[in-house]
Amino acid sequence: MWNSQIIFMLLEGVRDTVYMTVVSTVLGYVFGLPMGILLAVTDADGIRPNAVCYKIFDVIANIVRSTPFLILLILLIPFTRALVGKSYGSTATIVPLVIAAAPYIARMVESSIKEVDPGVIEAARSMGADTLTIIVRVLLVEARTSLIVGSTITLGTVLGYSAMAGTVGGGGLGDIAIRYGYHRYQTDIMFVTVILLILLVQIFQTVGMKIASKSDKRK
């Protein structure tokens, strides 16, 4: 049964999984990064406290994060269909993945930014820096390493979510594992997909950590 068709299918699965994971993470950052910055900046001990703004984003993040991904996936089917035209396949899976990843990323970004030494922020304020300058030139620069580590962790999480989307026809390796391994009892194919998933996570993790440590000038 290890014919070229199956190998081709597995390779396609890898491609789809990487596509979903990377695109969802990138789009997740498009929403999650500003949201995380807003959370960190408007918090009571942030550089521009704003209780209302903080609470709004805090609640949004909590609501999305407390909904199990599989439920979110199903809940969002009408929305996904309206947006992409269909509710199955890897492109359609990106929609719920982004929505699930964004608040997760926001929390990662928030905690990274909160690690920045308040002394450096104070120094920038003493030079007359405004809020935007502090965000761009101090917070994001000083938190760089931690942000990269965060995005590495996010990639792994989103990869896991994308595999979960396989249960409802999401495409990618998770889809293959469920269709062949679960529905058709082809355990060997399931094993291979799991190994491929492990390998992907390993690669993301190793590369991400290398970049993070290379970017860190503190040592």
Binding site: D117, G119, V120, E122, A123, R125, S126, M127, G128, A129, D130, V138, V141, E142, R144, T145, S215, D216, K217, R218
Partner: peptide, 22 residues
């Protein structure tokens, strides 16, 4: 006020340099 702060420099006990910048 921010413009005025430009004329009042400050140094600190723990230096407060940007650690990720040369």
């Amino acid at each position: 006020l921010r413009a005025e702060r430009g004329k009042i420099a400050m140094i600190f006990q723990h230096f407060n340099l940007l650690m990720q910048k040369n």
